[in-house]
Design a protein around this nucleic acid. Structure first.
Lengths: 178, 178
DNA sequence: GGGAGCATGTAATCAGTTACATGATTTT
DNA sequence: AAAATCATGTAACTGATTACATGCTCCC
């Protein structure tokens, strides 16, 4: 149940409408927890129902009109509770690793090209994270909030870096076979 | 659509019944693509329906009786096709990273303990992978199949190692705040 | 023959995805 | 006023998870 908490976090950072949230997910929180606008609208409805957020009353809540949401105290409390909750890490679930394993039984035909493609995609994603780091976290004194956000970003760069190294190794192995 | 291919791979490695597959998923393929027995039975039904696998006719197919499945040529061909298919890597989707981000807005209360717990879990998982490596891939001349399977395992150890390092960094940051 | 556990399966629910619908606003 | 696009939403479907049901085998 991470999506509601992702939305609460985004709304605490800045009250927003559904579409604004969708945009922000696309370029920020979504790097670690993606969501489509349909998911977001549905979840906003549930969160409002549950009394964790409310629509700002300023605007008329008609279809096609912007509706701004803000987090209520109950929502903020729920988020704080969730931060310290005990949740086991999810097991790895990666189709590419699975495909390598399949390649071990049916042969690695077509795999090298796919590995090269992934390599390029991960290079790009790493560049995206590094650009954000440079833009949002210039060297200097950080607040606690900034240190935590930088830590998240550093998780992203670390993961991409890992995949780059592993893909290079994998490509070398596969090219050596064919 | 990875589960059917995970099952095809497992069945090509060794024809099995539903429960045997479940067991093997728990200690081998499942490290990279987990599945419950309900998923597996349902998928076996679909794969048989689609003509990619068949139940070995030796046993009577009654409820409560073992039913062994084997992969047909169509299944093997489908698996080979899938290996070279173009599939974008999934975006990162990690609740822990999300929680750190939430901690930046509501405070890191309870987070340090959770990070320590995750550290311990990842240490254990890494130990599991290393034990498998030692048992199944002793140093020496490897066949192509072994090299590919070792590569998959190396993905697992690499990921766990990454998380260990990142968690240590995260813990140092969080402990420095409280 | 009664209970433990093995083996296969059904049903309900839920999160996520894809396709589509509709009202409002802006642009030409 | 027509077209584009912004903004919110509904509906249908798929994959994964949880809970439960049922038949078989083995062992005391």
């Amino acid at each position: 149940m991470s999506l509601p908490h992702a939305i609460l976090t985004a709304l605490m950072e800045k009250p927003s409408s559904g579409l604004e949230l969708t945009r922000r997910f696309d370029r920020s929180i979504g790097y670690f927890w993606s969501a489509t606008h349909q998911q977001i609208y549905r979840e906003l409805g549930r969160l409002e129902e549950a009394g964790l957020i409310r629509a700002l009353p300023s605007e008329v809540p008609v279809r096609g009109q912007k509706k701004q949401y803000e987090v209520l105290d109950a929502g903020s409390a729920e988020l704080a509770r969730w931060v310290g909750e005990s949740q086991d890490p999810k097991a790895i679930r990666d189709p590419l690793l699975l495909r390598i394993r399949a390649a071990a039984v049916v042969g690695p035909h077509g795999l090298a090209a796919e590995l090269r493609r992934h390599l390029e995609l991960h290079r790009r994603q790493l560049a995206v994270y590094e650009a954000i780091e440079e833009r949002d976290f210039p060297p200097g004194r950080d607040s606690d909030e900034d240190r935590l956000r930088r830590l998240v970003l550093h998780g992203g760069t670390g993961l991409e870096t890992f995949w780059l190294r592993w893909l290079e190794e994998a490509l070398a192995e596969v090219e050596d076979m064919t």
